[in-house]
């Protein structure tokens, strides 16, 4: 039998949104889709997959690499070897993917963000996304794949029928690796280098009295406030918040630069951010050369509008 197996990712009871990309790719592969879930109830659309395989394995143990292999042994025993095994490109997804590849001696391609139309080759980024490689799997599948978040969720097509449910229980789990607990990263001091979302203000903010409103904005956005050097020089924000050549180097998922011109010394500290968004009243500001998105306008007005929209 030929099918695609999705190993879903659940974290602290939440069915991660990244799984949608696994589903999207699986649907593009046009084979029956089997989705493996840990113990528990999740808001999974029953028309996403053809078969839902439920287990009695707790989430924390489910995502351990050896356990997932032991579980897969059973899955294969029951349903045969899948053609493709898809995981999320996340901490645990990639960890499990690599172990599965080694355990079952399978080819593996990670961080896949595209596929040719015949579903024969997969694309993956190389050299900090400067180049993509197209990979073929010469042998007869199966291949293990992790998918880049956001790459395939647009390709989800609902099935015409609800998925069948299967259950696998009684897997003998691994004792070499034991889960102890989840820990929140200690946040003793604000560490802008660890933030996923930075709102960074520059001299364009105008004066000190405007800053508390940015604190509020970062509060509602769940972001961290950082800044350029002049803001630190004026003692408006502490040195630990400074991004740049003589401050901190950051690479958040989103860097929202407001009223920052984009001087070389500042760019040096943030250019590797995944997504840069600039707000500046000067359409010629150099920051726009580095940004992915821009708004030409008054930063303080943008700030107030964002707050208003988020509250409404």
């Amino acid at each position: 039998m030929s099918y695609t197996l999705i190993i879903s990712e659940v974290r602290r009871g939440v069915f991660e949104e990244r799984n949608l990309d696994s589903l999207g790719l699986a649907h593009m592969l046009k084979k029956p889709v089997y989705m493996l879930l840990p113990d528990g109830q999740y808001p999974v659309n029953e028309r996403w997959s053809d078969v839902l395989i439920k287990t009695d394995i707790k989430e924390e143990l489910f995502t351990a690499p050896k356990n997932i292999c032991l579980l897969l042994d059973k899955v294969i025993e029951r349903f045969s070897m899948p053609d493709v095994i898809i995981l999320t490109h996340s901490s645990s997804g990639t960890e499990c993917a690599s172990y599965i590849a080694g355990y079952f001696k399978l080819p593996v391609i990670t961080d896949v963000n595209g596929m040719d139309k015949d579903a024969k080759t997969f694309y993956k980024s190389y050299y900090s996304d400067k180049v993509y490689g197209e990979f073929a799997v010469p042998g007869q599948g199966p291949v293990v794949i992790t998918v880049r978040s956001g790459a395939f969720r647009g390709s989800i097509e609902e099935r015409t029928h609800a998925s069948k449910e299967e259950t696998i229980v009684g897997v003998f789990l691994d004792s070499d690796r034991a889960f102890i607990e989840f820990v929140e990263e200690e946040k003793t001091e604000i560490d802008i280098t660890k933030a996923e979302f930075l709102v960074s203000v520059g001299r364009g903010v105008g004066n000190k009295d405007e800053l508390p409103a940015y604190d509020e904005l970062t509060g509602v956005l769940n972001a961290t406030l950082s800044c350029s050097r002049p803001v630190v020089d004026k003692l408006w924000l502490p040195k630990a918040r400074q991004v740049g050549q003589s401050g901190k180097t950051v690479r958040p998922k989103v860097y929202l630069a407001m009223g920052i011109s984009g001087a070389f010394q500042h760019i040096a500290g943030m250019k590797d951010s995944e997504c840069i968004i600039a707000v500046n009243k000067d359409p010629e500001a150099p920051i726009f050369q580095y940004a992915h998105y821009g708004i030409v306008g008054d930063m303080n007005k943008v700030r107030d509008k964002l707050k208003e929209l988020l509250k409404g």
Binding site: P65, S98, I100, G102, K105, G133
Partner: peptide
């Protein structure tokens, strides 16, 4: 360069050793 992130995991499984990434 390749951003694969799997060499250690494959090696661990082939050596039959526990692994954490």
């Amino acid at each position: 360069d390749d951003q694969f992130g799997v060499t250690c995991g494959i090696l661990a499984a082939m050596l039959g050793l526990p692994f954490a990434s």
